[in-house]
């Protein structure tokens, strides 16, 4: 490239040099245009309208702070961000533990930050729970019953319960349960067990706690049989090819937003205290769980 440039200079002198500079300027301008918008994906929660409202304030803050438009898009279901990260031209996504882990491993996504919740909680656990009056206390009692998972792409709502079942001698969810299904959200899985629409459920601890704080009957009626190790609940991961300068500006904007009034307001709407730096090593526990659950995942086959 450099040799070519010198050759052109030798042959065409100043005209060529001017043309090169012009092209170079246009190139810079094109690059700037490409970075005028950031498209960030969000995995759906129980009430996507509330969720969109929470994230909207964050996107507005970042747009103003970075001087570029930050757009949000709700992915149709958990895990879609990973399958369609490239196809949807996402620059980043707020991902739950299993999808973040998959994204880091398979798409080389770069974990940037985690939000710290209003209760100063950064992590979530997976819970496996039953109704207290169900008589189910161990994995052995679960055979022949119905179980509700959240989504095949959730750590708390699928990977963890599969890993627990695998460790406790239940290897085939297709045959060892009378019925199994995916509720689509953590709250729905909790309500399904409360109502008696499923005997056993799995969901994440933060949603369980939030619902139980709103309704005391939930703690009275549900019994937690097992809980997973804690892992970061939400992680903003960006594509590896994102302009490093923009990536760093984005990270800085989020890490420092609790230090100014506008940022604090946006954080309050987002229901977080602050953001903290994320590291790929935090997902080792999820990878270990994946290894434990792998035989059951293979057995489940079509559900993956």
């Amino acid at each position: 490239m450099r040799q070519g440039f010198l050759e052109i200079c030798r042959r065409h002198g100043l005209v060529a040099l001017l043309l090169f500079l012009l092209l170079g300027t246009t190139g810079v301008s094109l690059a700037a245009e490409q970075a005028e918008e950031l498209l960030i994906g969000i995995e759906p929660e129980h009430n996507i309208f509330d969720q969109m409202e929470r994230y909207r304030h964050l996107a507005d803050y970042l747009s103003d702070h970075l001087g570029i438009t930050v757009r949000l898009t709700i992915m149709s279901r958990y895990g879609e961000g990973i399958m369609r990260f490239k196809a949807r031209k996402l620059d980043g996504a707020f991902l739950t533990p299993y999808t973040a882990s998959m994204g880091i491993r398979e798409l080389n996504l770069d974990p940037v930050v985690h939000p710290v919740g209003l209760n100063n909680d950064l992590t979530s656990k997976g819970y496996i729970f039953v109704r207290r009056d169900s008589g189910i206390r161990t994995a052995a009692d679960m055979r022949g019953k119905s179980i509700v998972f959240v989504d095949p792409a959730t750590m708390e709502g699928y990977l963890f319960p599969l890993s627990y079942l695998q460790q406790n001698g239940i290897h085939d969810i297709n045959n060892d349960f009378s019925r199994h299904y995916f509720s689509g959200s953590h709250a729905s899985a909790i309500f399904a067990v409360l109502d008696g629409r499923a005997d056993i459920g799995a969901a994440k601890s933060t949603v369980f706690k939030r619902l139980a704080d709103q309704d005391s009957s939930i703690r009275q009626e549900l019994h937690i049989i097992s809980s997973s190790p804690a892992v970061p609940e939400i992680t903003l991961c960006v594509r590896n090819e994102l302009d490093p300068q923009l990536r760093n500006r984005l990270a800085r904007a989020l890490l420092e937003m609790d230090k100014n009034l506008r940022g604090q307001e946006a954080l309050a709407h987002f229901m977080a205290l602050r953001f903290v730096k994320a590291m790929a090593s935090e997902f080792v526990k999820v990878e270990a769980m994946l290894e434990e659950a792998r035989p059951a995942l293979l057995e489940a086959g079509g559900q993956e």
């Binding site: 009430n47 109704r131 169900s134 729905s188 109502d195 008696g196």
Partner: peptide, 26 residues
């Protein structure tokens, strides 16, 4: 212990109640 949860939209309309989408999915 298995239950069925049924919502009646006709009854809701007569009562002037809108089922929130997050309830309907249950």
């Amino acid at each position: 212990r298995e239950t069925e949860l049924v919502f009646h939209q006709g009854a809701a309309r007569s009562l002037g109640i809108n089922f929130p989408i997050h309830l309907l999915i249950e």
